[in-house]
Structures are given as structure tokens and as C-alpha cells.
Design a binder for these strands. Sequence first.
DNA 1: TAGATTGTTAATCGATTAACAATC
DNA 2: TAGATTGTTAATCGATTAACAATC
Lengths: 220, 220
Amino acid sequence: MPSMKRRVLKIDKLPTVRRLPAYLTLLRELYLKGEQFVSSAFLAERMEIEPILVRKDLELTRINGTPRIGYCIGDLIKGIEDFLGLGETLDAFLVGVGQFGTSILYNRELTNLGLRIVAAFDKDPQKAGALVPEVPVFDMVRLAELSQRIDVGLAILCVPPEDAQEVTDILVASGIKGIWNFTSANLVVPEDVIAQKEDLASGLAVLSVKLNRIQPALLD
Amino acid sequence: MPSMKRRVLKIDKLPTVRRLPAYLTLLRELYLKGEQFVSSAFLAERMEIEPILVRKDLELTRINGTPRIGYCIGDLIKGIEDFLGLGETLDAFLVGVGQFGTSILYNRELTNLGLRIVAAFDKDPQKAGALVPEVPVFDMVRLAELSQRIDVGLAILCVPPEDAQEVTDILVASGIKGIWNFTSANLVVPEDVIAQKEDLASGLAVLSVKLNRIQPALLD
DNA sequence: TAGATTGTTAATCGATTAACAATC
DNA sequence: TAGATTGTTAATCGATTAACAATC
């Protein structure tokens, strides 16, 4: 048996996949306005990328456009939804009902991407029993028990970083397959579990560098 | 005058810049534990990337390591802070004190990256007058006036997408230079204003694709 | 000294962009 | 038909990885 060191799961065309939700939001808007067709040039303008990149991206959905006319918006929406697996909803637990966790519970955009949070957990027993907004909140002590009983593939981690590994271990023990990690902790998980870290700070770093680049010399 | 079409500001070594905050968090932890030196192999393991990539990343800070010993943690911290311009704080307005906006007001990690939110705004007059957690909240009608008076470089946009462009126009008119856009709206701004869109949905899309890839055939 | 780890230089890989033929 | 827009094939660019010499 060869030693397998495939740590991080590489996915094909990652930048394209990242852009798909933005296409989807935009296309759904156009669809609601009654538009039928759209050109790569139009999408490119809105997304602030190049038209050729739009065409390359859309290639991934297997939807073909028509020269002179563009792409059928309905087909594209369906194509992206299929690619992202929005046929069925993605059931999830959310752990850590603080400010950030709560904002996720209310986030409509994620719902529109098929996310359905079926239960939330918090250490604070005061929070248990509530519905936020319509998701039941349980005491954290019930996490092990309930994650055994309810079969969800995904957990969204919004606890303080110092609790992150402990919660992760419970989730992993109960057979969870994916963890969306909004903490700053670097989680340790078995090979067959996907832990994806989401990092708001990285966005601020980029913005900060851009701002400094624009006004390079306030000291002159 | 040549027509300038430099729409999106390209920044050098973007993936590296994105990773810098994670390095910084990790290094500060080690520093607090009393560690003095760290190897690229150690950082790589924690960040789940390759050691050579760590060395390449750290190159950007101009800090040199020592063969056999590694990098001086204090120097690295200082080097990253300098690169990101953490010498001075980054003053910002936050617009939209909903669930998500509130979570940003409480976010410690962003504070640790030098972000200082000096005022928040909301359409709901009920929210005005409060301190969340210690940031004064104003009625949105005062945005134009106050952004004229107070000089901040950055605004954090957490309003509903349908209000995003309107708020943006006010901010731009008052001379803001950067907008951190957490709405799903594609903003229109003048060339000299940086609007950076942050998109939680893109992370979910990636995770969703990864999960489908792992369990490719539940239908068999 | 011997050996571990950095830093440098080159190779590879993948994403974006360019050019243009195909097609409606 | 003429012209606009797609889709394909090739070129470029930049990020990651590999190889290895330098060095403590």
C-alpha cells in the first residue's frame, strides 16, 4: 500500500467554481426581469472580468451559447445549479450561535445556494430552546447525541477559536464529512473529512494592500 | 490622453497576501507561548501547504531565516505587520447594522489586523444612538454629513443588496477611497475608488463541489 | 564536521488572455 | 449577405513545486 499524502483536496477549476455563485445571482436577477438571453460581454462588464473569461467559465456548465444571440439565461441558471448540485439541499449543523453564527442563520444568499441549516448548537444554555430565525438551537452538550441521530453532511463552525478543535472532534466522531471553518483555528481532521477554512481577514489584507498601493506616498 | 481601461486593480502576489493574516495569527500564538524560532516545515504543516511555498511567501516580507534554525518569530511578525501597513490603524465606517454588520463590529480578528470602525450607520432610526459594542451607531440620513466631516479611507458595506449602490454613491461623493462590499450587488464606482467584493457564497460553492466529489455515487 | 534548513534558480502546472475560425 | 458573438486553439502569465547549492 503506497503511503498516501494527498492532504488537501485539489479541485479542478477552483477560480471558476468560486465565480459561479456570482453568475447565478446575476442571472437569476436578469431572469426575474424577464430577460431571455445574455452575452458574455454583458456578464463580463457586471463581474468586472474579461468576456473571454466568462465564456471559459460557462464552458464548465456544458451550456452552449448561440453566436449573435448569446446564452439562454434559463439554461445557464439550470446548468450552474446542476453543477453545484443544487438539485438537493445541503443539510448542515451550525455550531456557535454568536454574532457571526447568527448572521449565517439569517443569510439568504446561502439559502439560495441550497444550504439548509437543520439545527444549531451553543455552549450557552440560555440560548437553547430558541428558534433563530426558524432553526432550533440546542445546548452544546447535545451535539454528540444529535449528530449521531441526524444525518447531515456538513457543519458550520462559528465558535471561538479555542473551542474549535474540541467541537471538530465531536463532529468527526459522529461521522460528519465536511466542516466549514469560520474560526481562525487550523483544524486537524482525518483524511476523509474536508475542513475548509474561511478567512475574512484575508480579504482585509488584500484591501489594505490595495489602499496603500493607491496612495503610496502620504509622507512626501 | 490615452484611454485608460485599467478597471480592476491587480495586486502582486495576491495568493501570498491572502495567506499573510493566517501566518500572522499563527505566529502571534507561537510568540505568546514563548517560542523564538520556527521552521518553514512547521508553518507548512499547520497551514496545510508545502514548506517551499511558505519560504516563498515569507520572501515577500523581506525577512530572512537562518539555515538549521528557521525564522525568528518576532521578526516575521514585525515583517508581516509592516507589509500589511499595520503601523497605523485603518479607520472605517460600517454601513448596515444588521446581523452580519453587527458580527463585523464584534470581530476581534479584524481588529487584530488594524481595522478600527469609528462609526456605524443604519436606516432603522431605532438603532441610532446605541453603541455596538463600543462603536456609535448613527441614522443613515447622517451618512453624507458625517462622512464629509470625518476622514476615513474605508467603508464596510453590510446593507441589503438593493440599497448597496445608493449607499455607495453617497460614500463616493464624500471622498471614500475603498469599499469592502459584503453585499451580493455588483457596485459601480469611479476608477479611483476600490470596491472589493467579499462573497461567502463562493466558499460554499467550493465546499459543495468538494463534498460531491468525495461521495460521487450515492446513486449506485 | 555533518546534517538540517534556508534561499535561489529552474521546471511545471494551471489560469487567463489573445487570435481567429465557425456560425447564426 | 454582413456582422456580431460564440467556441476553439494557441500564447502568455503567474503561482506552485522541484532541485540543489549555500550556510549555519
